[in-house]
Every structure is written in structure tokens, then in C-alpha cells.
């Protein structure tokens, strides 16, 4: 099914494309970001739409989408949480943070695999995944909730309460 892109979104995308006067292909990431921001994830239709928009073979877009964990290929929860997994945060307790969030948000991560790294709560409100180093190693454990950054996260209940 062709993706229905609202005209405002398309205008914003067209504007992004002008940032790449030498090659439209360069706009693959920005276009995908705009689409993901609007639709929550990148599905096959979004890949096809992007390919058509940038006059590329769809595989060239899919190659990019699947490379980057920043592009989700399935619907996340309303609030998508990314907990930093890497060394300094792990030393500061990010695995414990992950466990705690999952417990309090009702997320079961047992089905998580390399290809399917995101777990969603039963009510669809929260989804979670580990992210690699979020570059705030001095204030771990850290996480992103949608686009909001949180550091030294200790109070999980307080965090979840902000996103209700």
C-alpha cells in the first residue's frame, strides 16, 4: 500500500532534500528520519516511498534502513526507551536499570533477538531496547525516552510517571 505522506511532512522532506545540492541520494537518512518521526517506524511502504522520492532502487534504501539501529522496522510503544548498554553505563548500573524499567513498565524482553531488539509492553505504552554508548558516560546510567535524554537515572518510577 503506498504510504500516505501529509503535504506538510512532504514539504519538510523536500526542504531537507535541498540541503544536498550535489546528490539527492545523500538525503536518504534525513528523509527516513522525517518519516520515522511522523510514523514511528519505517515499514516497507516507507522504504518504497523514500526510494521513489530520491529516485533510487528500493534495495538501496533498505540497505541503509537495516544497517542502522536508529531506524525501527516495527512499531515501538508510545514512549520508546533506549537504555545505554555500554561500559561506563553498565558499570553505573544500566543492566539493573533495564531490568527495573522492564519490571515497572510491564515489558517482557525474553523474546528479544538480534533481529528484533525492541520489546513492547503489553499495553503498547512503552517499548525498550538497549542502545550502544549514548555519549554521556560520566553521568550513567543514561537513557533516551523518545527524544528526551535522562542521565543518572535512579528513580525509575519517577521517570515512567513523566511519560504516562
Amino acid at each position: 500500500m503506498p504510504l500516505e505522506v501529509p503535504s506538510e511532512l512532504e514539504k519538510s522532506i523536500d526542504d531537507r532534500i535541498t540541503h544536498y545540492p550535489v546528490s539527492k541520494r545523500s538525503a536518504v537518512l534525513p528523509v527516513l528520519h522525517e518519516l520515522q518521526h511522523h510514523f514511528g517506524f519505517i515499514n516497507e511502504d516507507a522504504v518504497e516511498w523514500t526510494a521513489a522520492k530520491l529516485e533510487l532502487e528500493p534495495i538501496k534504501v533498505l540497505e541503509v534502513v537495516t544497517f542502522y539501529p536508529g531506524f525501527r522496522q516495527s512499531a515501538p510503544g508510545k514512549y520508546h526507551i533506549r537504555v545505554c548498554r555500554t561500559l561506563s553505563c553498565a558499570m553505573a548500573g544500566s543492566y539493573e536499570l533495564m531490568e527495573s524499567i522492564c519490571e515497572k513498565a510491564g515489558i517482557d524482553r525474553s523474546g528479544v533477538t538480534h533481529h528484533d531488539p525492541i520489546a513492547v509492553s503489553a499495553d503498547g505504552k512503552y517499548s525498550i531496547e538497549f542502545a550502544e554508548c549514548l555519549a554521556s558516560c560520566g553521568s550513567g546510567p543514561v537513557c533516551l525516552v523518545n527524544d528526551d535524554f535522562h542521565e543518572e537515572v535512579k528513580d525509575v518510577e519517577g521517570l515512567l510517571k513523566k511519560y504516562n
Binding site: 540541503h19 541520494r25 538525503a27 536518504v28 527516513l32 533510487l56 539501529p69 531506524f71 554508548c133
Partner: peptide, 26 residues
């Protein structure tokens, strides 16, 4: 212009970054 990556350490490598900025796998 600001160009946002999408979660890849390899884009810190300058030629990987350039490929990424060209819209290809980095």
C-alpha cells in the same frame, strides 16, 4: 547543514561517515 546519523559507531570513521553522508551504507 546538520546531517543526522542513525546509530552507527562506524560513522565516526571519516570515510564511513562520508559514505553515510552520500546516502549509502557506511
Amino acid at each position: 547543514y546538520v546531517h543526522r546519523g542513525a546509530g552507527a559507531y562506524i560513522c565516526g570513521e571519516e570515510t564511513g561517515l562520508i559514505e553515510s553522508l552520500e546516502g549509502k551504507r557506511p
